[in-house]
Design a binder for these strands. Sequence first.
DNA 1: TACAGGGCCGTAC
DNA 2: CGTACGGCCCTGT
Length: 102
Amino acid sequence: MRVKNLKKLQKLLAKIPRGNVATYRTMARAMGIPGGYRYIGNLLHSNPDPDKFPCYKIVKSNGLVGGYAEGTEEKIRRLRGDGVIIKEGKVMNFSKCLFTGF
DNA sequence: TACAGGGCCGTAC
DNA sequence: CGTACGGCCCTGT
């Protein structure tokens, strides 16, 4: 099992402050895979432990929440629970909520 | 062990 | 505004 990247991603997610979000592109870049944003989605899709793996903190680079294994609405719900304002399926104040401190 | 396909995207046309 | 394709690693057969 090459869960190395998975763990890395998890660590990066843990670095995201409450109320902030990151994009697939950013995460991929932070992992050293600039063009692997799609791969990130793949990892998250096979998310082994949703509870310890806040993948909902990852949104599309255009601010849209994007998809979610358990449903987009659930994702939005969790984001709101983190203090992120979601409207019409997209993150409000996206630039502000976006965390790039990797 | 090898091959082929997949995925919560992004960018370009 | 909508469609098509691209490049990345993992999973399953």
